[in-house]
């Protein structure tokens, strides 16, 4: 069971309090009604699924209920950092500890 740092509560809490919410930094197109089928498929279905650093969303559903983002190594499952929704995608190198 992972231990996850909620950037809103500023606490390490067990995974049971959280819900993973998929890849981060995929914004819903503002003109969504106008985009092409291909663009829609890219937005809705296509995922990076990286082996290594992954930017992902979590929700502290049984805590403060906020969505936030995390950078995690998908091979070691170690979190490099978590940050609040809306913050810029940080640049992190593999092996770096936040």
């Amino acid at each position: 069971m992972l231990l996850i740092h909620c950037p809103y509560c500023d606490e390490d809490r067990p995974e049971l309090e959280f819900r993973n919410a998929g890849e981060a930094h995929i914004a819903r197109p503002e003109n969504i009604a106008e985009i092409s089928d291909e663009e829609f498929a890219q937005f809705f279905f296509i995922r990076t699924n990286p082996k290594g650093l992954i930017y992902e969303r979590w929700r502290h559903i049984h805590g403060c209920a906020r969505f936030f983002n995390a950078v995690r190594d998908s091979v070691s499952d170690k979190f490099l950092m978590t940050y609040k929704a809306g913050e810029k995608r940080p640049t992190v190198k593999a092996g770096e500890k936040a």
Binding site: R19, R28, R57, R59, I61, A65, F67, A85, G86
Partner: peptide
């Protein structure tokens, strides 16, 4: 509820 919160917090804040 989760679906609404997701959109409210992250797409339509």
């Amino acid at each position: 509820m989760n679906h609404m919160e997701d959109y409210l917090q992250t797409e339509f804040p």
